[in-house]
Write a protein that binds this DNA or RNA. Structure first.
Lengths: 243, 243
DNA sequence: CGCCTATTTGATCTGATTCAAACAATGTGG
DNA sequence: CCACATTGTTTGAATCAGATCAAATAGGCG
């Protein structure tokens, strides 16, 4: 049903533009090295000066900032099809760290190859720019979530986001998804303590909105979950709004 | 000392690339309409589908998300030289609202004109893409600030950021800057109550780090302020790190 | 002068943190 | 296949940072 490894990027860009055959060929012709990593592996460190971009093929990764007192804040999750460090094409120095959550398969592409591709097929460059703009939109919601929603709504909102994004890349069947995020990681993403995340998840379970167990998320009541999280998917800029 | 109205964009792009004479000419040749607005004026509403971009020439604006319960979260401030809605070039529908803080002068440029410019001078497109990537980096820090720093550090960090960015565009002389942000706006940006913002600012004043009064910010002890806010300017990706 | 907006103050309350520990699941090597 | 270690989840109690509510004061400006 799915295409082979190398084309989740094409699938994603198709969501954004009508790709011409020539453009798809250019993408398939990209020189890409495939690498596998284990879980909880730091892929890029703050301060690095990467010369390659990473296309996530399988698995989940997160980005985070570290504070001097040792705390960390996860600022994004990424799923298959995402080029999670496109920014390194234009910003020399990494301002945050990227780490795998689960075991991952990653396609590594040289900056030079991508920049050359943009020259030949400018619309592909624009499509990837667009992708980074959607990332930015997600950051804005993330700020809003952490800044102005209480623990319950905040958690519900993030669950909604992750679920919809996994749906969008074909990784959810019906109302169940493989859930790659531990409670401690959720806490770092939500700006909460892991203890409180636990209690909020129990609340959401008791209210029969969702259950998360053994790395599976099940949505019991999508409508109420959305309401609880004050969630509106338009900020994800998906072609056909699933939710 | 400063160039006329139309060139803060050139000054900014110069920070990022060596602009060729031809490229500067292309920028100067852009067809731009200059418009003035009063304070607290909504420039773009969530849901809008803009066909033009806005280059801020004078004044300050902010972006924010509104929650259904009426609260709002400010997610960014912008200062002269910023194209604060470049995203509308590639994302049809606005996912947040933009409003002036102070009276503003704005240069309005048609999307079509910019996209045409990118075709002719691809490096200008890349420079503006880079700009949007720096915005994204700022969002990430904003999430981190709101999610993981306590009220004092959070406030100090934002003050540092705004100060450095104003410095970078030549709007600060020594340690004093025109401060365009009220305490209520600060609260919406920091995810705090305006009452608590007030108390934190008093603390920072008592500790002799800063004073904000009559729309002037004065930095008394930059080193300690940076320390208090756990501030490191590298995420701003400025050419010559001022701070 | 008088209105409106911004800042400040005090008192009270609460959502979430922290600390500490138990419990459950998963995986590893003997 | 079991014993043990490790990581993730759950529980309870004490505490606190920051919110909320309510009202006073101070600037700025037409």
């Amino acid at each position: 049903m799915n295409e082979p490894d190398s084309s989740p990027l094409i699938r994603k860009l198709r969501q954004e533009f009508q790709l011409a055959a020539l453009e798809e060929d250019s993408l398939l012709g990209l020189n890409m090295r495939v690498v596998d990593h284990g879980a909880d592996k730091e892929l890029i460190r703050e301060g690095d000066r990467p010369t390659e971009c990473n296309l996530l093929l399988q698995g989940s990764v997160c980005r985070y900032n570290e504070l001097t007192d040792g705390k960390r804040q996860i600022v994004a999750f990424h799923f298959p099809g995402d080029i999670f460090d496109a920014q390194s094409l234009l910003l020399q120095r990494m301002d945050h760290t990227v780490s795998t959550l689960t075991p991952c398969r990653i396609g590594v592409i040289a900056h030079a190859a991508l920049l050359k591709l943009f020259e030949e097929q400018p619309r592909i460059g624009l499509a990837i720019w667009k992708d980074t703009l959607v990332d930015a939109s997600i950051y804005r919601q993330w700020v809003t979530n952490v800044g102005r929603r209480d623990a319950l709504a905040r958690t519900a909102h993030l669950v909604c986001e992750v679920y919809v994004r996994l749906l969008a890349v074909g990784l959810a069947r019906e109302s169940t998804v493989d859930w790659p995020i531990t409670q401690a990681e959720l806490a770092d993403a939500l700006g909460m303590s892991h203890v409180h995340v636990n209690r909020v998840l129990q609340e959401l379970r008791k209210a029969e909105l969702i259950t998360i167990e053994r790395q599976k998320l099940t949505i019991h009541d999508w409508k109420q979950l959305k309401a609880a999280g004050d969630f509106d998917a338009t900020y994800l800029h998906l072609r056909d709004s699933i939710a």
